[in-house]
């Protein structure tokens, strides 16, 4: 979260646990001593490197001050649909928080100047949405 300049007072509200292929963020204070299915919300995926999840960025991303890409409404929609957006990354590289003026859209990746959408399928809009 340092990468995004999210203040410690925000991140400090959560406890982070590594299990399975992820790091989970929770505000629960007692963890039951039985097998659990989920523990709060997955904040990072571990697959070689650490990748922030869209779901967690949608919670804390509004506090990000670094590595943030602002999109207008129409490129925001293309981003959600999974398109590559050109000309918005500047000199940023790696994972970024992608947002519009009002909404945190989720996780993107800046690579060679292109913004590549990391929005999981379940959050991609259907053509019937308004």
């Amino acid at each position: 979260m340092e990468r995004f300049g999210i203040p410690v007072r925000i991140v400090g509200d959560f406890d982070f646990y590594e299990y399975g292929k992820g790091v989970w963020a929770t505000r629960a204070t007692t963890i039951p001593s039985v097998k659990i299915e989920t523990l709060g919300i997955r904040a990072l995926r571990i697959s070689g490197s650490l990748k922030p999840t869209t779901a967690f960025l949608r919670i804390v991303g509004k506090y990000a001050s670094k590595n943030v890409v602002y999109l207008n409404k129409s490129s925001g929609l293309s981003f959600l649909k999974g398109s590559v957006i050109q000309g918005v990354c500047g000199d940023m590289r790696g994972y970024v928080v992608v947002r519009t003026e009002n909404d945190i859209l989720g996780c993107g990746m800046c690579k060679e100047g292109s913004l590549i959408s990391q929005i999981p399928k379940k959050y991609r809009p259907d053509s019937s949405w308004i």
């Binding site: 959560f14 963020a25 629960a28 039951p32 097998k35 299915e37 989920t38 919300i41 779901a55 919670i59």
Partner: peptide, 10 residues
């Protein structure tokens, strides 16, 4: 965005 929730199955 409810991070306080722990899900169990049983």
């Amino acid at each position: 965005g409810a991070t306080s929730v722990i899900i169990t199955r049983g």
